[in-house]
Design a protein around this nucleic acid. Structure first.
Lengths: 131, 131
DNA sequence: CTTGACCTTCCAGTCAGTGGAAGGCCTATG
DNA sequence: CATAGGCCTTCCACTGACTGGAAGGTCAAG
């Protein structure tokens, strides 16, 4: 299977697959003409990567998860730890964004949004801490 | 005021301030010795930028907001639109992350996390869509 | 035989900084 | 006066995870 079909199967852009090869996540064989050839196991790995990336795992996490996935001697604790850490990071980011959202919501609500220059958004952003 | 003090006042690393000058967000004067000199207005702009960045506005948005802030003829509608758009992007990102969190939470909960290899996290990531 | 859809490599750019090297300037102390 | 150390300067490279595009090779259909 060529890269185009592999991309369609895995749900990844061909460019991304080439990049994943560059950084050593997959190692497709090559045809006589130099084209990459993807076998079922390659597709399976790419699908795994697509899923893991969709859950927000970093490439480094993906590398580790992939290694664990291929290692039948693994301890699920190792997988659990990676996922748990990642979950915590996501929750921290959600909390950060939630705070931004709350502030922004208030500012947007209080701004008239008309043709006059008065603007609580700019006033707030421009506020100097009292010296 | 030199860059070190400006950084302390604005709550930004000196490196970031140099970068902001590079991309034209601030234009501090220079001393005879080549050092940047920050006057009150520069500090005020830097503080504005620090606040806007802390709310997640992109540098491009910051550039526009700064221009509006300095333009007393502005229409608050322009500010409102930028903030509103940004708010929507934040909310979209929160929603995305929330979905990731929910999936991850389930996976983490269902994984024993012991020394055995069985792992619903890996099973899910490795699932091929049924053909 | 040509067209067009594939495929290849390589280079550059994204975003918003950050790290570090090499070197100049300024102040205080011995 | 020398020197130490704490500022400051520029410039280059790197980050993550791709993405866009150029230049060119390959293959199947008509």
């Amino acid at each position: 299977m060529n890269i185009g079909q592999a991309a369609a199967q895995a749900g990844l852009p061909a460019k991304t697959i080439r990049y994943y090869e560059d950084i050593g996540l997959v190692k497709p064989a090559r045809d006589a003409n130099g084209y990459r050839t993807f076998v079922a196991n390659d597709i399976h790995k790419l699908t795994f990567l697509a899923h893991a990336r969709a859950l927000g795992f970093s490439i480094d996490d993906c590398r580790d998860l992939l290694a664990l996935w291929e290692n039948t001697e693994r301890a699920s604790a190792d997988v659990h730890r990676i996922a748990q850490d990642h979950l915590q990071q996501i929750e921290a980011k959600i909390a950060d964004l939630g705070r931004m959202r709350d502030t922004l919501k208030t500012l947007v609500r209080d701004c008239a949004g008309d043709d006059r220059p008065d603007c609580p958004i700019l006033n707030t952003l421009g506020d100097q801490p009292s010296p």
